[in-house]
Design a protein around this nucleic acid. Structure first.
Length: 879
RNA sequence: GGGCGAAUAGCUCAGCGGUUCAGAGCGCCUGCCUUACACGCAGGAUGUCGGGGGUUCGAAUCCCUCUUCGCCCACCA
């Protein structure tokens, strides 16, 4: 019977909810993760799935270790993104937000958010996320909004917020300013136009190179580098802007690169941040005129030729180039690769625009955070992000926090008719200085100005709530590297600045989910894997397995959207295997099974001791790997234990004993091992482990694996001797199977075999497992230490102990001779290279002694083996 | 322009100084319905560990370099 997760998973999730296991234990040391709040408009995609499953693995692990596990969920109001969604809706109805007006528009967004804002949180439940839903937060909650306002006022009072008049990134589609981080670079193939500007004295032309000819009407002058001899004579001269005829001066500035273009730079101070700086140096008094409207059209300005006014900037560019060409003012057009900044929300090419915005001074916030990093107060995992993180923290510029939107936290700056201005925690009725009428700033705050407070605003700050005291600072932050700068670094800044403490100990940066061509999964490419579809097809556990076991720490996850079956088969297969191990074990166990501790240790066979040792090894390994964030290795070690050790060997070895008088010992061992591996696997595949664990003998219905204790290593079962000995048994069985397959011995044919343990070692190993070997190697009889003859296979086990497996009957002597001599040749060759190494003076003298000694031992063992082989060939009468 | 990462079996990836380190899963080949599992069992095949140098007694593993992909950062218009 195959396991079907579909009817199981929702029932299990509900059981967890009903039992309240996702809420932190009352009296325990906390372990806190705050979710990176997804946008209220978001639908679960596979990137979310990866990110949140990682968090769930960590939180479930710590919960089982007895910590008060707090995984705080919530959503982000996502100013631009959400506003865009509603504006798109309005557009479909033939309206704009301006038709509705601010209040009605905001009401409409709220209505949308109330209706669908929890979609993604509900979807997280289907993949098993064990968030503390009782503490779900939203960045526009009243309490959260108070935190945001408090932070703004404090920064204002500290003088860290100021009004800046400068060129910022402007999105002509979203109609708002953006921060540096929100305007993303995209390499673009563009053109570099070489344009003639006529000298106004009629003495000729100068040539200027630009990628954006449409900005030339905003030119305030031309500059060249003072060291540039080519243009020395131009200083103080004036040129006419083509098409408009406006006369502008020529000056010098060090910022001009000597090697680029013609060495002459047109300066457009209102539409280029760099030019703004140059203009401030060269012509500080000159007016800096905007020549484009907010939505990216050519301004109705006397500087802009009438036929271009109102044209979109890119259409204007085309028209201008055509006209210049016609007028003979276009010298040439070069292909030019350069980076264009685009709005991170709508992909529109951003227009640099001179405007007044609110800024936060970043240096005083960043410096302590960087210093704390150097002191090791928090870590980035994987560590390779160090360089770019440090670099960014050092070079960060002031943060533009005002957005010309309606959806978000309104900026609490008030200005009165007499010009008094301040930031206020409450909405004032009148100016607090002069009593005049006041007006609030119309803009809202950058979304990240609220999410940067997430680790403490969610717990009630600035109120000193019990939650805040208990759950701050948190422990692990799991997120995608894309928002390291946008979000993580700022949380660190706010955490240190307002709380005086780091917000978390470890920043775990996951990889990116990509398709087989290594392209990021995205809606527009249509190459996404829909986690909801995966859950429906294979179950949440299979999805989780592939995401966790499928890639190592911080590495990208490659999924094939065109072959879900192959992509998720490993998880599905493994779940099924676990299920069937469960079917078997549960079918065997009686209602009462004695505890492992109660078993007389003298009753334990080699196989028992071996599997218990492997269990301890798996517990130790999985625990250490989880502690080191190596989730894949933890998962794989458990997989090995469950499948390759418990199911493949122990269960098989033990089957005959289940109907014997020693069955109760086997029951105890089986139960212990199965129970342990279910617990170890629970963080990764929570549903099936819960389902099976509930059915174990002795479980009451109130007990849940989700809050069960994490297994600990049983020191008394760390048994390396059992490991070595059982490995020999395994090896001998594998050898016999191998021979059987090679000689095509029919499965039903029972062979006789002989095992010779040489050097007097450990015959009892095989004696004790005689039944097992016979059964698993399908033998009719097995003799130990018999005379070595007939045909067969042999092998040498570590430490010089040797086993010869001789198979009698059903094996062709001629074939065996060929096989043996082939083996002998191979062995001689290996021996040759080993001997060469051992006679190499530099190896013997320079390599560590243990290594040399080990090689010597090996040589001895191989020699013996060779002799045995030779003897065997002889005794068989091979030529 | 600066920085980072990746390149290992047909595919997705582990391994990151010591020949049992050349591995796993999926796929492939050959047998098997062996008292849980064909989403399975048993047995196999497959790789000059991207190219080229170097360090070392010894390199997939360290250094340099090249090639190809990817990412991050960036005020040469």
């Amino acid at each position: 019977m195959a396991y079907d997760p579909r009817p199981v998973e929702p029932v299990i999730y509900k059981r967890w909810l009903d039992a309240g296991v996702f809420q932190p234990r009352p009296d325990a040391e906390p372990y806190v993760i705050v979710i990176p709040p997804p946008n209220v408009t978001a639908e679960l995609h596979v990137g979310h799935a990866l990110n949140n499953v990682v968090q769930d693995v960590l939180i479930r692990f710590e919960r089982m270790r007895g910590r008060a596990a707090e995984w705080l969920p919530g959503t982000d109001h996502a100013g631009i993104a959400t506003q865009n969604v509603i504006e798109k809706q309005l557009a479909a109805e033939g309206n704009t937000r301006f038709d509705l007006g601010r209040e009605a528009f905001v009401a409409r967004v709220w209505e949308f958010v109330r209706r669908t804002g929890n979609t993604i949180l509900e979807q997280l439940k289907t993949i098993g996320c064990s968030c503390d839903w009782s503490r779900t937060r939203f960045t526009l909650d009243p309490a959260y909004s108070r935190s945001v306002r408090e932070v703004f006022v404090r920064l204002w009072d500290e003088g860290l917020i100021y009004r800046g008049h400068r060129v910022i990134h402007w999105c002509p589609h979203c109609l708002t300013a953006l921060s540096d981080e929100e305007a993303e670079h995209h390499e673009t193939q563009g053109n570099l136009y070489h344009i003639k500007y006529p000298l106004d004295d009629g003495s000729g032309f100068v040539t200027v190179a630009t990628t954006r000819p449409e900005t030339m009407f905003g030119d305030i002058g031309l500059v060249f580098n003072p060291k540039d001899k080519r243009h020395a004579s131009l200083k103080g001269k004036r040129v006419k802007i083509p098409l408009s005829g406006v006369v502008i001066p020529i000056a010098t500035d060090d910022a001009v690169e000597l090697g680029f273009g013609t060495g002459l730079l047109k300066v457009t101070p209102a539409h280029d941040a760099n030019d703004f700086e140059i203009a401030n140096r060269a012509w500080p008094k000159e007016e800096k005129q905007l020549i484009m409207t907010e939505d990216g059209r050519m301004e109705k300005s006397p500087r802009v030729p009438a036929d271009l006014q109102g044209l979109d900037r890119f259409d204007a560019r085309k028209r201008i180039v055509k006209q210049l060409e016609k007028d003979g003012l276009l010298v040439k057009t070069e292909q030019h690769q350069h980076a264009v900044r685009k709005c991170y929300r709508c992909d529109t090419v951003v227009e640099p625009r001179l405007s007044d915005q609110w800024f936060v001074k970043m240096k005083p916030l960043a410096e302590p955070v960087l210093a704390a990093y150097h002191k090791g107060e928090y870590d980035l995992v994987p560590e390779r992000w160090r360089a770019s993180y440090e670099n960014w923290m050092k070079g960060m510029r002031d943060w533009n926090i005002s957005r010309q939107l309606w959806w978000g936290h309104r900026i609490p700056v008030f200005t009165c008719a007499n010009g008094h201005q301040w930031a206020d925690r409450e909405d004032p009725q009148a100016c607090r200085t002069c009593g005049a009428q006041v007006e609030q700033d119309p803009d809202v705050l950058d979304t990240w100005f609220s999410s940067w407070l997430w680790p403490f605003a969610t717990f009630g700050w600035p109120e000193q709530t019990p939650d805040l005291q208990r759950f701050y600072p948190g422990h692990t932050l799991v997120t995608a590297p894309e928002i390291l700068f946008l979000w993580v670094s700022r949380m660190l800044m706010s955490g240190y600045h307002f709380m005086g403490k780091r917000p978390f100990r470890t920043v775990y940066l996951t990889g990116t989910v990509r398709d087989t061509q290594h392209r990021k999964m995205s809606k527009s490419l249509g190459n996404g894997v829909d986690p909801r579809a995966v859950v429906k097809l294979y179950g949440a556990d299979a999805l989780r397995w592939t995401l966790i076991a499928g890639s190592s720490i911080g590495a990208d996850v490659i999924l094939d959207p065109n072959d879900l079956d192959t992509t998720f088969a490993p998880g599905r297969n493994f779940a099924n295997k676990l299920w069937n191990i469960g079917q078997f074990v549960l079918g065997q166990l009686p209602k009462q099974v004695q505890a492992l501790e109660a078993v007389d240790r003298r009753q334990l066979t080699l196989a028992d001791r071996w599997i218990l040792a492997r269990a301890s090894n798996a517990i130790a390994g999985a625990t250490a790997h989880l502690e080191n964030f190596k989730l894949d290795e933890a998962a794989k070690r458990c997989f090995e234990f469950a499948w390759n050790e418990l199911a493949d060997w122990y269960v098989e070895a033990v089957k005959p004993r289940l109907s014997s008088s020693s069955a109760s010992t086997v029951h105890a061992v089986l139960l212990y091992c199965f129970d342990a591996v279910l617990r170890l696997l629970h963080p990764v595949v929570p549903f099936i482990t819960e389902e099976l664990w509930q059915k174990l003998p002795g479980r009451t219905s109130e007990e849940l694996i989700a809050t069960a204790e994490w297994p600990t290593v049983l020191q008394q079962f760390m048994d390396s001797d059992a490991d070595v000995q059982f490995e020999r048994v395994k090896k001998s069985i594998e050898l016999i199977r191998s021979i059987r397959a090679e000689y095509r011995v029919a499965p039903k044919t029972r062979l006789k075999a002989t095992i010779v343990a040489r050097g007097g070692d450990r015959v009892e190993t095989f004696e004790g497992e005689r039944e097992t070997i016979m059964r698993l190697a399908q033998l009719e009889s097995l003799s130990l230490n018999g005379i070595q003859q007939g045909v067969g296979a042999h092998a040498v086990f570590g430490e010089g102990s040797e086993v010869v497996v001789a198979l009698e009957g059903a094996v062709d002597v001629k074939l065996e001779c060929e096989r043996l001599s082939g083996e002998l040749t191979r062995l001689e060759k290996q021996l040759g290279s080993l001997a060469a190494r051992l006679t190499n003076e530099s190896f013997v003298s320079r390599a560590p002694q243990e290594v040399v000694a080990k090689e010597r031992e090996k040589e001895k063992a191989w020699r013996d083996q060779r002799d045995v082989l030779a003897g065997k060939l002889k005794s068989l009468g091979c030529s």
